[in-house]
Amino acid sequence: MTEQSSPITAAEVTKVAKLARLTLTDAELERFTHQLGDILGHAADIEALDLTDVEPMARPIPLTNVFRPDEPGEPLDRDDVLSVAPAVEDNQFRVPPSLGEDS
């Protein structure tokens, strides 16, 4: 097992949290950096393998196109779906404005 300084830095965790749309407190950043480092440190065993000629396996069974006759099915009831949404207006999901984001 390769013991590097740290498999992941606090700056990388900050970047990943931003990509994943999560806000971390300073204490969380420190704790998660340490814990993710432990897990990635364990993954060093496969990082060290030479797998050049091995095909990747993304799923247990190959994906095949699934066709059905082009006929209308039974859709979910619109009122049922909208009734569990956080905010609705005129039969649509309502969200805050997107303008101003990242500005």
């Binding site: 992941i8 990943v16 990635l40």
Partner: peptide, 27 residues
């Protein structure tokens, strides 16, 4: 804004283990 709403919702709604795995997977 919608961006801030999404981030605030996920930050408040997910527990630590879920956040760890989302970040690990994103990484």
């Amino acid at each position: 804004t919608v961006g801030e709403m999404i981030e605030a919702t996920r930050t408040a709604g997910f527990g630590d283990e879920v956040k760890r795995r989302i970040m690990l997977g994103t990484y």
